[in-house]
């Protein structure tokens, strides 16, 4: 029987962490871009795109991420599409992040006080000018802390993709455990790695929140 050193375990887990990081980045950036596009429909003046985006957000917020992964992975398979695990994982996480980010950002646009709309309107600005020069710059400042905070959810969300067989940190943990029979050590390290990824993100979210609050205290 082969003996595994702690270094063997750690090395393999760290290699798999690359995939967790990559998947998180893809989900967050892809979700951010899609979320931004959806945001403009959500706060736009046309009624049916607004309703459609609202429905989209409600579906993704109202179902577990795991079900969404299953549907993308197995569901599309039923229709004859052969979906590899990485594609199902990436796509689902992008769609999922987009839904949450759209909703977070919509809240930030709403948080800009009504007086700002009225003042800019009274100066003759049209809707697009109000958005571009007055509302969005302020909404963006409000949006930074919750957006960074949400990135933590994305990192942890990637763990679920292990269930459809995508080998990231959690899946690697299972694989390594099966070879070493040291579940406590292995999952302990896995948890530690997640913590090292997430903690700086939540911390920076807090710091940003405090900073931006100071800047905002008088408005």
């Amino acid at each position: 029987m082969t003996d595994f050193t702690t270094w063997d375990i750690l090395r393999n887990l760290l290699l798999a962490t690359r995939w967790t990081i990559l998947l998180s980045l893809v989900a967050f950036l892809g979700g951010g871009l899609l979320g931004l596009a959806l945001l403009f429909l959500r706060i736009g003046r046309l009624s049916w795109p607004r309703q459609a985006v609202r429905g989209y957000v409600e579906v993704f917020q109202g179902t577990p991420l795991l079900m969404q992964l299953f549907l993308a992975f197995f569901g599309l398979g039923l229709f004859g599409f052969d979906v590899p695990a990485w594609l199902a994982a990436g796509l689902t996480l992008i769609l999922w992040s987009a839904a949450f980010l759209t909703e977070i950002w919509r809240g930030c646009v709403d948080a800009v006080v009504r007086g700002q709309w009225e003042a800019s309107a009274s100066l003759g600005m049209g809707y697009v000018q109000q958005m571009r020069y007055v509302i969005l710059p302020q909404a963006m400042r409000i949006a930074i802390p919750p957006t960074v905070g949400f990135s933590v959810q994305v990192v942890k969300g990637t763990a679920l993709t292990s269930i459809i067989g995508f080998v990231e940190l959690s899946k690697a943990g299972t694989v390594v455990t099966n070879a070493t029979f040291q579940p406590f050590t292995v999952y302990g390290i896995v948890a530690l790695i997640y913590f090292c990824l997430c903690w700086p993100l939540s911390k920076s979210s807090q710091v940003l929140e405090r900073k931006l609050n100071v800047a905002h205290r008088d408005h």
């Binding site: 007086g115 700002q116 003042a119 009274s122």
Partner: peptide, 17 residues
């Protein structure tokens, strides 16, 4: 219309950014 008539508000409504 708004180019002809300006408006000042109770809450100032300056752009804080």
């Amino acid at each position: 219309l708004r180019l002809k008539v300006g408006m000042i508000f109770q809450q100032f409504n300056l752009f804080p950014h």
